[in-house]
Design a protein around this nucleic acid. Structure first.
Length: 445
DNA sequence: GTTGAGCGTT
């Protein structure tokens, strides 16, 4: 052995990955102990990646790497060998001949381009030591950053927030779809309030009907990833024969609507997750509510969160929806609690499924209380939530404090400080422990 | 000198 006895990274196999066949920019990425590579691990280093390929040393042809359940499988029984693996990114342009018809190509693309414009993004909770340069450097992994403005007071003291702007919509979407840990702080990146309703958005989410019970979120993700980058999947449990898939590119989502696809031998139908019913019971809803089931079905959140499938790829669809990035499934307009806190807490409390994690155990994976060691004592009387999903009041104004924080359970005063839900490091019912949560920020010096 | 929810002296 070597003299790094206290350093156990060599129990993981590292594989060399690059964006192209030039390995000078390659990154070595650790596999899991079973030899597979988590897609989320790949995405963490290569945002937007949806798979891997490699050039076969003998045939010299490019071969794809098998992706199943969010895991990339080594090309042979011998493992990953010492080959260079190349990231696969979703094709920018579309896929099917029908979509290249005159009606759908130029005109439609033009329309979309006009709609899908970048806006400034606000970054909240930046570390005090941030500089324009460091922030630019951090966000450049999502694409070209054309502007960084950190806000300071009259004395030049940094106020802990700022604005950034990307060169492309895709970069913006990638940044909005992820959580950001900058120098150990969870930083919220959002569309500024001043831009709310100004930045036009297209639905990124589709409704997938006729799902069979054996279709997991990972199945849907794997299948639909071939059409474009999937940022979120939600399959309600218990089984309800439908699911939702959210794409990074709204054009991909739109192009799939109206189509039938075969997954696991069954025909599913893809349709718009667009508004279908109007909610009268909840004054907090915006004018329209979305999808077949409002929040319960249509809502989603961080993928790869707090469940056994083991990884968190930092997708933050909950945030996206709240901020109008994806108009489908948005919460009430006057949703007072910082959405990131809700997301983090629900995730860590084992609600990852409700928020759309790959396990999709939904509200039912939370059986009668917060995780051990949690400070979330306000949950204790809500054990019925573990049986039949959220109480009806979730969608109504008399809910436990979603609106004004008057009732105590949800207002900020009752949230544990600093460490979030007990700081147990794991994702509630999940086992992977890779869910950092949003509210883990600690005071810094 | 301190801080940790917020929304931009363009």
């Amino acid at each position: 052995m070597n003299n790094k006895d206290n350093f156990s990274e060599d129990i993981f196999e590292y594989i060399k990955v690059s964006e192209d066949e030039d390995d000078s920019n390659a990154v070595e990425i650790p596999c899991e102990l079973d030899g597979t590579l988590l897609l989320s691990t790949l995405v963490a280093q290569f945002p937007g990646a949806c798979g891997l390929k490699y050039r076969h040393p003998d045939s010299k042809t490019i071969r794809g790497i098998r992706l199943s359940d969010g895991k990339l499988h080594p090309p042979s029984e011998q493992g990953w060998a010492k080959l260079l693996f190349i990231c696969v990114f979703p094709k920018e342009n579309k896929r099917k001949m029908e979509d290249v018809s005159p009606e759908n190509s130029a005109a439609k693309t033009k329309r979309l381009e006009k709609k899908l414009t970048c806006s400034d993004l606000i970054c909240l909770g930046l570390p005090w030591k941030s500089t324009e340069e460091s922030i630019k450097q951090y966000f450049e992994k999502f694409g070209e950053v054309v502007m960084v403005q950190l806000k300071r007071d009259k004395n030049g003291l940094f106020k802990g927030f700022g604005f950034i702007r990307f060169a492309t919509y895709a970069s913006q979407m990638r940044a909005l779809a992820q959580r950001h840990n900058i120098d150990g702080r969870w930083v919220d990146v959002r569309i500024p309030n001043s831009k709310e309703g100004v930045v036009p958005q297209m639905p990124c989410k589709v409704f997938v009907g006729r799902c069979t019970e054996d279709m997991t979120a990972d199945d849907l993700r794997e299948y639909f990833s071939k059409f474009g980058e999937v940022t979120d999947v939600f399959v309600p449990r218990p089984f309800r024969a439908f699911g939702f898939v959210t794409f990074l590119d709204p054009e991909v989502a739109q192009s799939l609507c109206g189509e039938d696809h075969v997954i696991k031998g069954a025909s599913v139908s893809v349709s718009s997750a667009a508004p279908k019913i109007k909610s009268k019971s909840n004054p907090n809803w915006k004018d329209d509510s979305y999808g077949p089931n409002n929040w319960e079905g249509n809502r989603s959140g961080p993928s790869g969160g707090s469940n056994g499938s083991g990884s968190n790829n930092n997708i933050d669809t909950l945030n996206m929806q709240n901020l109008g990035i994806n108009p489908n499934g948005g919460p009430p307009a006057n949703f007072n609690l910082p959405i990131s806190l809700v997301a983090a807490a629900l995730n860590q409390a084992g609600w990852g499924g409700f928020l759309g994690g790959p396990g999709n155990t939904g509200p039912n994976n939370w059986q009668g209380g917060p995780p051990q060691g949690s400070g979330g004592k306000n949950w204790n009387n809500n054990q019925n939530w573990g049986q039949n999903g959220p109480p009806p009041s979730w969608n109504q104004s008399n809910n436990p404090g979603w609106n004004g924080g008057k009732n105590g359970n949800w207002n900020q005063g009752n949230w544990p400080n600093g460490q979030g839900w007990g700081g147990n490091g794991g994702g509630g019912s999940g086992s992977s422990g890779s869910n950092g949560g949003w509210n883990n920020n600690k005071p810094q010096t």
